[in-house]
Design a protein around this nucleic acid. Sequence first.
DNA 1: AAAAAAC
Length: 546
Amino acid sequence: MQLSVDICNTKSYLAGTGWRRSAPLTALLLRSTAEREQRRHSVSDTDVQEITQQVTTFEELGLSPKVLSAVIDAGYTQPTPIQAGAIPHALEGKDVLGIAQTGTGKTAAFVLPMITRLEKGRARARMPRTLILEPTRELAAQVEENFVKYGKNHRLNISLLIGGVSFDEQLKKLERGADVLIATPGRLLDHFERGKLLLTGVEILVIDEADRMLDMGFIPDIERICKLIPFTRQTLFFSATMPPEITKLTEQFLQAPVRIEVAKPATTNASITQKLVKSGSKPWDKRDRLRQLIRAEGDELKNAIIFCNRKTEVATLFRSLVRHEFDAGALHGDMDQRSRTTMLENFRKGKLRLLVASDVAARGLDIPDVSHVFNFDIPIHADDYVHRIGRTGRAGRSGKAFTLVTKSDKKYLQSIEKLIGEDVDWYDGDLSTLGPEDEHEEKPSRGKAGSKRNDRDRKPKREREARPPKAEAQPEAPVAAEATQPVESHRSAPAPRPAERKDRRDNIRSGNEDRRSRYRDRDDDMPAVVGFGDDIPDFMKIVGKV
DNA sequence: AAAAAAC
């Protein structure tokens, strides 16, 4: 079934061609505080000043020529509603309350005016001039990329303060004086407590994804940080929804903000084909099912994100897929930052076909051109479903989203269908001829042949944890060798014939390799390589490069 | 029935 989903369409605005399609979106612009108060609880269409049709180009927004030229160079001509609404006010120095989903062009809505305003003045050591708070490290890094892209005509000192990486380099950049400081709350406060950071010079504060910060328990940190910054600052505040806690926060820390609300569009151009796929409820049933689906999609599946609900499941599924010779990587919050960065980078570059991920990758991540999304686990919260499948079908492309559904998933499925206002079709393709896994299908109890594999599946988390390969853990594939050995050369190596593949798989299942990996030193745990001989997946050979 | 974030 073809179903339009708001987040996906709006996401397409980030792509060059997408920004022109602003018609379905409506930006609400309520000018005065009084007006806003009056209408807070009942915003109706007649209250709305539509600005979408009025502003048609970036030139009209008041951005500086240098910023404008970077925007044009990036291929954008028309601002999205949130950009058209927020930029003029942000340039005037007003506080902005932006209510918008990720992917509505929200990031550029604060990056562009900030760069314009930063043209005047200069940063002093340890006193950043602007501060942007993000809920996850990957989003923070993504915002940094935006500053690099749109600030290419400027000489901005940009500093990224996130956890999981060393302090030293971050300190150096702070010492040099940061025009732009992008941070996750934990690491920012860490630096502050060490006395390496003064927030008294911050002219512009951006709080992004506020409702997600709320979910993550960041609000006390946010309140603390806000209090450290002089109230003469300008605050740009973004949230997809406005629960009471967030409203309270805005009342506390924003001064006479201009409220800009981007409504969810009812229909979209970009579309995602969604399918539900019945599966047995055991993890191995689901893994079998997933492999069948991936094979059934064949070449149509260019690349895919596979979402699991738990980090342990991400790790297990990742290892399982690699064992079955799929080109897979993993991304979740317990992985070391280096692996996270590398996995995401390789997936973005197309060096990795499958990315098994937790919901750390569900929202906001800008990965154009993902052909498929699989929900290995049905998301417990319906809005996560929308965010997850919104990773595909972007930039005017079509996408496919498959969700594995077990008997116990019914209530979650119901809440999803209620949220999106439509029933999702069941997969009608034939998966019964797609491989040896089928014989395990829907088996209520484990057969003898499968029991060893299942034993492994049930091992406690720590020993099974997927350790995405670290560069230093594979001396046989040093960075230098990678440079002289292009990825294509691996690709062109003769692939094992189907019969060999099956043999190898059975061999792995027999448990010999398992025993080896089980007793290996944990830090040296590179299970994916064990048993592959020379047939190491591409991505493992390139992880040295960051 | 979860994930995310500082050491």
